[in-house]
């Protein structure tokens, strides 16, 4: 066998870098949507590699729900400084005020839906023609059918019946004024690929991905962190548990998992051993309807 051979992580990496470079070449004003989670941190790492030794030629955009983990925000600022990138933050809070939107109620009020408004406003404000997102096709049924270059109309809507054929490694990012393209460079990665790549490349992560003690409420089998956004009801039991996060979203709609894993190796071992999917285990908002993601995407969500 020849030595000119890439393993699967190297193949995924080369494909993602190719996609990042197509974005930089094809669009006038692209932006990378940065959530602070491991997938977007991995994307920043890939983008850095794609344009080294130059800077990443687009800003990082954080649509801030206001319900973030403080550790994730701290890490975001550290990373932006580290890679010398431009960071744009737009707050869902402000959109709610400006547009007098109604905040979702309930015990775990998710601003997930409202993020879409802020995102579309931000696209409009900066005239972004392309938003790079960290969605993976293995995450969810609706994602499995989405192209790497996904054209959205002026309302940000995805139309699954009108997708462009995506052939070989040729990406057609041409759009009309007002439309924009969502590009997903890590479409073909799975959760485990991301973790293995983080280990291989020694990528830093926020501390909440590793086991730590935290006060949590147990809700229908899921552990939700106590915070200023989530307060216990009268009959809730507040427990102190050793937990880590498998995904990092809002404090209100991301559940923690019990864990003793304090190193990357241990985290990966635990993930290999789990028999529950990432979204199923940690996202409270995906359980509402079976087609929740499909609906959100059609409405302009990432």
């Amino acid at each position: 066998m020849s030595s000119y051979h890439l393993n699967y992580l190297e193949q995924l990496e080369t494909e993602s870098i190719h996609i990042f470079r197509e974005v930089a070449a094809q669009f006038e004003k692209p932006a990378l949507l940065f959530s602070g989670g491991k997938d977007s941190i991995t994307m920043v790492h890939l983008a850095k590699k794609a344009f080294a030794p130059g800077k990443i030629p687009f800003p990082l955009v954080h649509i801030d729900t206001g319900h973030n983990f403080p550790e994730a925000l701290e890490f975001r600022d550290w990373l932006v400084n580290q890679v010398n990138a431009i960071l744009i933050v737009r707050k869902v809070e402000d959109t709610i005020k400006q547009r007098s939107l109604t905040e979702p109620k309930g015990k775990f009020p998710s601003r997930n839906w409202l993020q879409t408004y802020t995102l579309l406003d931000t696209i409009e404000e900066f005239k972004f023609d392309c938003c790079i997102g960290g969605a993976r096709r293995d995450e969810e049924k609706a994602r499995a059918k989405e192209r790497i270059f996904s054209v959205r109309d002026e309302f940000g809507q995805w139309n699954p019946k009108l997708q462009r054929p995506e052939l070989w490694n040729i990406y057609n990012g041409r759009i009309h004024k007002g439309e924009n393209v969502r590009v997903f460079p890590i479409s073909n990665w799975t959760e485990l690929d991301i973790w293995n790549y983080i280990r291989k490349e020694k990528i830093d992560l926020p501390s909440i991905y590793f086991a730590h003690e935290r006060k949590v409420i147990e809700h229908e089998g899921q552990l939700v962190a106590m915070s200023e956004y989530v307060q216990p009801a009268e009959n809730d039991v507040v427990l102190t548990k050793k937990v880590r996060y498998r995904t990092v979203g809002d404090m209100t709609c991301t559940a923690a998992v019990e864990s003793e894993a304090s190193t990357l190796d241990e985290v990966i071992d635990e993930i290999i051993a789990t028999r529950i999917s990432e979204r199923g285990e940690t996202r409270i908002d995906d359980k509402v309807t079976e087609a929740a993601m499909e609906d959100r995407k059609k409405g302009g969500y990432f």
């Binding site: 499995a144 059918k145 019946k161 799975t190 485990l192 087609a291 499909e294």
Partner: peptide
Amino acid sequence: TDGLRAEREQGITIDVAYRYFTTPKRKFI
């Protein structure tokens, strides 16, 4: 493997869907 609600309702497949699985020997798309 049936993805979208529209497909489930109509019992048809509209588009290419990508699936992933891994064995100790290989990753498959």
